[in-house]
Design a protein around this nucleic acid. Structure first.
Ligand SMILES: [Zn+2]
Ligand SMILES: [Zn+2]
Ligand SMILES: [Zn+2]
Ligand SMILES: [Zn+2]
Lengths: 166, 166
DNA sequence: GGTCATATGTTACTTTATAACAGATCGTGC
DNA sequence: GCACGATCTGTTATAAAGTAACATATGACC
């Protein structure tokens, strides 16, 4: 069990990925039912590819999956699916990579923090509420209202750091 | 005088921009002298354009400036100048905008926080050391070493929020 | 003035993203 | 059932952002 305020160690190590995927998918399906959202084949294909990969994927990597599945072959197909998934909080865009990663927090509203390994390209998502709140408060003090927050740390995970040292 | 731990209100309001530019330029020149860096014409042109604009500019907007100044017309010219300026801490890349902004903190090592107004495209830079330190510490607890940090808040500055409400 | 590192000029290309518009499908009310 | 507006899909074409590669030039140093 992961405490939601901690960075998720599993992202950079072995874990029950089958369960992790199933749980995330169930959460998204529940959210779609509750909010009358349409999880169409193309959208599901993109989400499943991201859940399975458990890493950041570019729009064009995802487009390849769509093409293989016979669900579209032109960029707008991938970008539209991603737009839906990001708008509804099921997927996050990693600005630093121009890439996308499935959310591990069930689609509820949250400020996410990402750790990006430049070695293995793995991405860990954390929810550190005090971090976002602190910045939003500083900004509000200057009359600035924050609508969206991007917090990304790039570096090396434990395994890749060992590999690089060797 | 701005306290360095505060978000800079001036970025979204009137200020002595002449002095602001001159001060930043002097700091960069001093840093170049101290560190034996070569501030070539193309690099200076890019930096001056960013200091004058006091907002984020894309590589291609900057390339237009270079072209007008007769200093180059192909993308690598702009990207190389930007690479130098970013590597040495004189300019920051705003990931959210795929754009660049002059640093307002004199080239010393720091974790910067940006507030990006989606109305006027202004960018305010803050240095909030405890924010970066907190995230780095959380990450280190998981064996992850952060080498670079991206912290960007997107929203509306006071002026643009009023304009939008109207 | 030779030489190594750094910087520039240029061509060609890749990757990322969007505009625009025609056609299909879905949910709803009658 | 079927008209209707809203949403989703398919496709063409193009814009915007970024890089690889290689030849040439310049600077710093001895
Ligand atoms: Zn999330
Ligand atoms: Zn790694
Ligand atoms: Zn700075
Ligand atoms: Zn504004």
């Amino acid at each position: 069990m992961t405490r939601s305020s901690d960075i998720e160690a599993e992202a950079f190590g072995p874990h029950d990925h089958q369960a992790c995927r199933a749980q995330a998918l169930a959460a998204v399906e529940a959210a779609c039912a509750a909010r009358r959202l349409r999880m169409t084949p193309a959208r599901a294909c993109v989400l499943e590819a991201l859940l399975e990969a458990h890493r950041a994927m570019t729009a064009y990597e995802l487009l390849d999956r769509l093409r293989e599945a016979g669900l579209g072959s032109q960029p707008p197909v991938a970008y539209r699916a991603l737009d839906f998934l990001v708008r509804n909080g099921f997927v996050h865009r990693i600005e630093r990579l121009s890439a996308f990663v499935a959310c591990t927090h069930g689609g509820s509203e949250h400020v996410a923090v990402f750790l990006i390994c430049r070695g293995c390209r793995g991405v860990a998502e954390a929810v550190l509420p005090q971090l976002g709140a602190g910045l939003a408060a500083s900004a509000a003090g200057q009359g600035f209202s924050v609508e969206r927050m991007v917090i990304e740390g790039e570096g090396l995970c434990a395994r890749c750091r060992e590999a690089e040292a060797a």
